[in-house]
Design a protein around this nucleic acid. Structure first.
Length: 271
DNA sequence: CCATATACCTGGCAGC
DNA sequence: TGCTGCCAGGTATATG
């Protein structure tokens, strides 16, 4: 489900409300991708100081240590004063003095991992190799260009890998490549500087616009406030196999790259 | 080190 | 109606 925009929208929907809360209890459901890494009772009494995001990870900072939360493919967070009874797919309840943060994740590709600091081994195992934040000023065109020059894999897969730039998942990779007129199968190193400049702009625009619109609602995404997003209503290529390109009316093509579907317009994306 | 395949898990849907 | 197979927003890990 969640790419950078959905994770960021989720963060914004509860960060201010949970900041300052004290942990009353932590209940975990079925096993997630990785074990929590400490006894849940150890967290009782700790204070939530802030909620940050790094790539698709949420960092819930406590006055001592932090929780790394990943939504995987099907996860969503809900923060409310009172929650109903836990369902079969609710795998974390973080009870605090301000409300309960609940993780709902049917496929359980998500994770909640405790780390003593963001620089500790358990945190760095997950965060250490991540690329630059696309919406930050540090996403520099010239650095981006230089990094792509060293990658001979197809540009779509380089974007998805997250080692150059984070947060671009399967939906937004296809969308950004359409906006910049790039064929997803082109090797990253082959892209011209002007073309990379278009891609750099497209990534920022598509992600920022999706955040502003509340994320995508393919299937079941909802923010922690229960609102759903509207981005899918205007996807240019994602999920539009065979439908006419919005710009030139040519049928959108679908191919497989690294076991993942890619969507593109064969006429508008030639570079 | 690099690029690609695999594994994790459940639900929804198309096709028979 | 009910079964089967395939597909789904991610990414660490294994494999070549």
């Amino acid at each position: 489900m969640p790419e950078l925009p959905e994770v960021e929208v989720t963060r914004q929907s509860f960060a201010d409300r949970i900041a300052g809360a004290r942990v009353l209890a932590l209940h975990m459901g079925k096993p997630l991708r990785w074990p929590l890494g400490l006894e849940p009772t150890e967290l009782v009494g700790r204070q939530v100081t802030q909620v940050r995001r790094r790539g698709k990870y949420l960092l819930i900072d406590l006055d001592q240590g932090l929780l790394l939360v990943h939504l995987g493919m099907s996860g969503s967070l809900n923060f409310d004063q009172q929650q109903g009874p836990r369902g079969p797919h609710d795998h974390m309840d973080l009870e605090t003095t301000r409300g309960v943060l609940r993780l709902h994740d049917p496929r359980r590709f998500g994770a909640v991992v405790w780390a003593p600091s963001e620089f500790s081994a358990p945190a760095q195992k997950l965060l250490g190799h991540l690329g630059v934040e696309p919406l930050a000023d540090s996403f520099d065109l010239h650095v981006f260009c230089a990094e792509l020059k060293q990658k001979k894999a197809p540009i779509k897969q380089v974007l998805l890998a997250g080692q150059v730039v984070v947060g671009v998942g399967n939906i937004y990779a296809s969308e950004a490549l359409f906006l910049s007129g790039i064929r997803p199968s082109v090797k990253a190193a082959q892209l011209s500087k002007p073309r990379v400049a278009k891609l750099h702009t497209a990534i920022r625009e598509v992600l920022a616009r999706a955040v502003a619109k509340g994320g995508s609602s393919l299937r079941d995404f909802v923010s922690a406030e229960g609102k759903n997003g509207y981005f899918q209503l205007e996807a240019s290529v994602y999920g539009r196999t065979g439908q006419p390109c919005r710009r030139c009316a040519t049928p959108i093509k679908q191919i497989m790259q690294g076991q993942r579907s890619t969507f593109f317009c064969p006429v508008c994306q030639k570079y």
